[in-house]
Write a protein that binds this DNA or RNA. Structure first.
Lengths: 216, 216
DNA sequence: GACCTATTGACCACTCTGGTCAGAAAGAGT
DNA sequence: ACTCTTTCTGACCAGAGTGGTCAATAGGTC
């Protein structure tokens, strides 16, 4: 990432980064088109290569940047002293949402890199960072959680997976619904009803998977 | 679809169809490459265009064929007199699996067509078939199901969605795990443990979402 | 041999790719 | 007004890949 690029308006930087995140997340490294990234970002093709010397460099910068964002805006803000599973889940969802509002495709890009890591032959430095990140991500919903609140007639791991899958399924469906609405800009205003829906689902999950009598 | 093609060895037909299903399902119509389909199917490029006159005709034939398969091998075999939700789920999963073993990518292709239908401008005849199919697919897990078995302190629709999402999450994870193993051929033999795991999960879901005392 | 069908890959015109570069545009300093 | 520097651009390049064609084969049957 050029110093030139870092000296730009923050908003222009974000526009370019997001265009790139989206294209790479959607198509993968090889299929992604620098032409489309430039067009989507609203800059000339030459300008893109003025900021980033090559497609590969752009990609590596995105990897690094997305790791940094995940770290600074998400992982480091998680309150690991919260031992209640569902409050942890709520908290991390809110943090993720905050990231999403600024950089809608950064975390999706990162996930894509995680999954297809082996194809990319990243420089060693990034591979190291990635392994550290992978370890941390596994702990987000387990570290210091009081699992004794879970009902005992269902294996803990099964309950954990079921909750994960349910939330993920809801997330996918929500994404679909929102895409259908075709909004340009997602304000907190328009999404308020979805917060309620989501929190309602969390309560239901708690009722299902916690021991009876723990519903404060 | 040419008569020439239909006269081929069944196994050769399947090889070509599956290669095409996979490519289209993965990349969508425009991004799919006829070159890759031919190479993957192990036939010359000229041969592919000898069987199918154009990329578009190939695609339309696949749509038609996948609808036919879904109908004959799946939808029409569902026993709608089964009113128990979980037995219905088990039965339909087994049917889907049977289809998957012959045509691994046919149903995935069909799902892709469903989602991106509007971009494709299919001939009217296929649009009609598609609407009928969409209606039927919505009924698979609801038609003639005895929902009174579900516990009453959770909204029926919520319970239904949670189960759907859990199953779907498991399916995705299973797919991931199997891809990691990198098997060429999935025999019933190697997958036996997964049946048990799946049926175990179904029992757990029943315990969760049915009224207490209904676990025969 | 002749005849027919099945199969092929070199080839075509065309689009798109990542990347370059001469020069336009915009400031800044005088 | 003039110059110097930095920012920005799209026409342009060679190369790869596209859907589709077709003369040339190979193989079987009479």
């Amino acid at each position: 990432m050029d110093d030139v690029f870092k000296a730009l308006d923050k908003s222009k930087q974000l526009r370019i980064l997001n265009a790139a995140y989206q294209e790479f997340a959607e198509k993968g490294y090889k299929q992604a088109s620098t032409n489309k990234i430039a067009r989507e970002a609203g800059i000339g093709k030459g300008t893109l290569f003025y900021y980033f010397t090559s497609k590969e460099e752009l990609f590596h910068d995105l990897v690094e940047e997305s790791f940094r964002i995940a770290d600074e805006q998400y992982l480091s803000k998680i309150d690991f002293s919260e031992t209640d599973f569902f409050r942890r889940l709520k908290q991390t969802s809110e943090l993720k949402w905050a990231v999403y509002q600024e950089q809608p495709h950064a975390l999706r890009f990162m996930a894509q890199v995680f999954i297809h890591m082996e194809e990319y032959e990243l420089p060693e430095e990034l591979t190291v960072k990635r392994q550290a990140a992978e370890e941390t991500w596994g702990k987000i919903l387990t570290e210091n959680i009081d699992f004794s609140k879970f009902r005992e007639d269902i294996p803990q791991e099964t309950a954990f997976n079921f909750i994960r899958w349910t939330i993920e399924g809801y997330r996918v469906e929500l994404e679909q619904r929102i895409k259908m609405m075709g909004l340009d800009k997602l304000s907190n205003q328009t999404l308020e009803p979805y917060y309620d829906e989501f929190y309602g689902y969390l309560d239901t999950l708690k009722k299902i998977y916690y021991k009876p009598g723990l519903n404060e």
